[in-house]
Structure formats: C-alpha cells, structure tokens
C-alpha cells in the first residue's frame, strides 16, 4: 500500500533540493537578455538560412498544403473520437485470471498493473472479433490495474472489485483468491 506520508516526503525532498539548486539562478535574467541581444546582432548561419526558408514557404500554396494535411489529421482524429469506446469485460477463469476488453475498433490493447510492475502485458484478439483477452497466473492477493487501449488509459473495468484513485485518475482493483475486497 502506498503511503501518503511517503508522498509527503517526496514533496519535501524535492522542494528542498529545488530551493537549494535554484540559488545558482541569480542573474539569469541578465544573462538571457545579453545572449538574445548577442544572437540578434550576430545571427548564426543556421538562423539566417532558417529565416530565408520560412519567408520562402509562407506563400499561399504552402498554406493550402498545410491545410490539407491538417484536415486529414482532424478527420482521422474525429473518426476515432466518435467511434464507440471500449467496453471492458472481465471474468474469473479457473486456470488463471482472465482480463478482457471488447473493442472492435482497437488496434492494440494491453493490461498494466501491480502484477507486471506496470509494464504492459498485451491482450490478443486472434480471431479478430474485437474481444481482446489475456489470462494471467496470479498468486492470491490484491492487484491494481488498468487497460491501455491504443495508448489511451481505461482505468475503470466494470468487472473490477473496486476502484481507487491514483494521481487523480481511477485504476481498477481485483482480489484474486482472497474472497473479495475489504
């Protein structure tokens, strides 16, 4: 179990370290302004080439090309956003613990949790029916976990025993072989 007291220690240590380390930042404003003025007075070859390139490619035809690419990206993004979201589903399997997600649109699904030090364990969908599964051999105990579907965190599994909030987001909790939650 993660201790809120330990989290407080982390904050204290970082606050102290940052305070001491930042003492060397005295006068940074002056150094930055001098450096900016120096660069403006003597631009590097790279800066001169960059400015010429930017000026050359600010014509409308490039704006149209950029707009077309942007429209394509927006179209793909909207398509993904409007698609039905994943429907997590899980059940207890006698030979192991089954983790399952139903998402016909997904390209990759993984489960992350205490049992894997939060390294992703891929789920598979061999017959392409949109049901992604993995069976894990877990010793009895309490496990926090979540799914990652196409890079997106899915913290609440409807089949979980309970939910907890970590870092402001939900993760699921499963009790394996212990008779259930507290």
């Amino acid at each position: 179990m993660w201790s809120s007291d330990l989290e407080e220690r982390i904050r204290e240590v970082l606050a102290k370290d940052m305070e001491r380390a930042s003492e060397s930042l005295a006068g940074l404003e002056d150094r930055v302004i001098r450096a900016i003025a120096e660069r403006a007075a003597h631009p590097s070859l790279w800066q001169r080439m960059r400015e010429r390139w930017l000026a050359a490619f600010s014509t409308p035809r490039w704006a149209f090309a950029g707009g077309a690419v942007l429209a394509l990206v927006l179209g793909i993004t909207l398509g993904r956003l409007l698609a039905p979201g994943p429907v997590p589903m899980s059940a207890f399997a006698q030979a192991g613990t089954l983790f399952a997600v139903v998402d016909p649109q997904a390209q990759s699904v993984a489960v992350v949790g205490d049992f894997s030090a939060w390294e992703p364990i891929p789920l598979s969908d061999p017959d392409g029916d949109g049901i992604w599964t993995a069976v894990l051999d877990l010793p009895p105990g309490r496990y926090e976990y979540a799914f990652v579907v196409d890079g997106n965190w899915v913290g609440q599994d409807p089949q979980a025993d309970e939910y907890v909030r970590s870092f402001g987001e939900y993760t699921s909790v499963r009790y394996v072989g212990t008779g259930g939650g507290a």
Partner: peptide
C-alpha cells in the same frame, strides 16, 4: 495514458 503508466511504474 503513457504518463499514467510511467507514474505508476
């Protein structure tokens, strides 16, 4: 999602 995973890890 990656940030969450890395924080937990």
């Amino acid at each position: 999602g990656t940030v969450k995973t890395r924080l937990h890890r």
